[in-house]
Computed example of a mutant assay.
Amino acid sequence: MTTVVVTARRDQSVAQVRAELAKQAEHRTEIDAVAVVNDQGRLVADVALFDLAVAEDTTTVGELTDWLAQFGPPVTVQPGTRIDRAAELLVAARVSSLLVIDDTGRPLGRILADDVLDTLLPERGRLHFRRFLQ
């Protein structure tokens, strides 16, 4: 799990979010989406980098999340979620990562698909240590 989570608010423009992503360039392998949070820091939506890439600069994050709502809520897990359950959710939702949220819905981190593979296939993975918080 990575604890690098880029967040945005509904009122931000896509250009503003892209600027924040540019500041996080050193974490490019750990970021595949942006968690949209409300004023209390609770998760509202999860916007994939692709959706940010193809959106107009002046589009608001709120407009993107309203459009994404048709596909259902973001796929999330709790810190104690078993690895096999995380793998099932990744496959079922056809996403490349899962947001890890606390009991109040605040993002804590993200489990990337390669984290799951590294854990399930440690002898084949590019990393030979567990990246999940225990």
Results as ranks from 00 to 15, higher is better:
L49D: 13
A53W: 12
D46L: 00
G109L: 07
R130E: 15
A86M: 12
L21Y: 11
V100S: 06
R42I: 01
A33K: 04
K23G: 11
T65V: 15
F132M: 11
P79D: 13
A55L: 10
R18E: 08
W67P: 00
Q24T: 04
A69L: 09
I31F: 03
S97C: 13
V36G: 00
T29K: 12
A53K: 09
A8I: 02
T7W: 00
S13A: 10
A19P: 04
D114I: 07
Q16N: 05
R28I: 10
A69F: 07
R9W: 01
L21I: 12
D46K: 00
L108V: 10
R9A: 14
I31Y: 02
L133K: 06
T59M: 14
G41W: 03
Q78S: 14
W67R: 13
K23F: 02
V54I: 15
L89V: 06
R130L: 12
R85T: 15
L21E: 10
A113I: 14
D46N: 02
V4K: 09
H27Y: 14
R85N: 03
S96K: 12
A8S: 09
L133S: 11
A87I: 04
A113C: 04
D102E: 05
D51P: 10
R42A: 11
L133H: 13
D102K: 05
Q12V: 00
D114L: 08
T29E: 13
D32Q: 03
L127V: 15
R124C: 05
S13K: 07
R110Y: 01
V4T: 10
T2H: 15
L68A: 11
R110N: 08
D114C: 11
S96W: 02
D32M: 02
L121E: 11
A87V: 08
A15N: 08
A33G: 14
D11L: 09
A93E: 15
T29N: 10
R130I: 08
L64H: 04
A22M: 03
V14M: 05
T59Q: 13
V91L: 06
I83S: 08
R110S: 12
V37I: 14
D46T: 00
R124S: 11
A53H: 07
D115C: 11
P122C: 13
V6I: 15
A55T: 13
E88R: 07
A86K: 08
V100Q: 10
S97P: 07
P73I: 01
